[in-house]
């Protein structure tokens, strides 16, 4: 085993760690969308934890692809997600707010009675 292949393996290890962390964050955000009580709180889990997870996965893929055209396209994809994701979340939140959807504003525990959680 020469030095190049050791380096290659290290890069693959880092990329695997990044991708698994990112996928774990995306999965946790999805669990949050199911568990949280109302629309406005779900929005936090759905929109934003996704963004970090997506960027980590794309970073891992870039490391895995090496220095090629594929990496450039992946970087462009990451930039697009980074720019559009907060705008889309803001648009949904703004539309809900203007239509008069009332947010839940009191302290909430997930093990109390659940029927008021709209």
């Amino acid at each position: 085993m020469d030095w190049m292949s050791v380096l290659q393996f290290a890069v693959h290890l880092v990329s695997a760690a990044l991708m698994l962390t990112g996928a774990g964050i995306v999965l946790a955000g999805a669990v949050g969308v199911i568990r949280l009580p109302d629309f406005y709180t779900r929005m936090h889990a759905a929109g934003m934890t996704d963004t970090l997870g997506a960027e980590l996965i794309i970073l891992g893929l870039i490391l895995q692809a090496g220095f090629t055209l594929v990496s450039v396209k992946l970087a462009l994809l990451g930039l697009i997600i980074f720019l559009t994701s907060p705008t889309a979340t803001h648009a949904v939140a703004n539309a809900a707010y203007r239509s008069g959807l009332k947010p839940l504003l009191r302290r909430w525990r997930s093990d109390e009675n659940r029927e008021d959680a709209a």
């Binding site: 955000g29 934890t49 302290r107």
Partner: peptide
């Protein structure tokens, strides 16, 4: 972003979610 993400994930993955949303 990373700091806030860890805080949110801690809330979401706790066995009992306890939050007080504010506007």
């Amino acid at each position: 972003i990373v700091k806030a993400n860890i805080a949110v994930l801690r809330i979401v993955l706790a066995p009992v979610i306890e939050i007080k949303p504010v506007v």
